[in-house]
Amino acid sequence: MNWKLWSLKKSIWVFHVNTGACNNCDIEIVNLLTPKFDVERFGIKLVGSPRHADALLVTGGGTRQAAVRLREVYRQTAKPCVVFCMGACACGMGIFEKGYHMAGPIDKIVKEVDPNAIIAYVPGCPPKPETMISGVVKALSAL
């Protein structure tokens, strides 16, 4: 395994983008930081600037107003980066599929910017924190 891949797997800095979620996925993501789950064990760290991030955790189905900002954030993220669609809404807009104010799903919005974007899906409404961790692990072992 080359060093680039190894280090990428061992050090994942994530940046969290809410594109119109109901807050459940967001709370569970914050939960990952608290003592019960402590993702720093795996080298996962939340950072405050997309330029530092290796993974974008996107929640929500992508409303029209948020989609513009999501594209902007994706452009600012240093590549290579993985887009994680957290929750049913982000994966396929879930129950909001037919909403008039939706621009999603997330993979479509991201692929408008970069057709070769790496996108991983963690379904669930909301996914349990354990699921999120295992989703990240699976996405990484597929690299």
Binding site: W3, K4, S11, W13, D38, E40, R41, G43, R51, P80
Partner: peptide, 28 residues
């Protein structure tokens, strides 16, 4: 710092991995 906050904290190679990863990334 992690131990003070009742967490486990990162493994010993973490800072090295962080720096190595950043070296392999795109510069914007």
């Amino acid at each position: 710092s992690a131990l003070v906050q009742y967490r486990v904290g990162p493994p010993v190679y973490q800072p090295a991995a962080d720096v190595m990863k950043l070296l392999g990334k795109e510069i914007l």
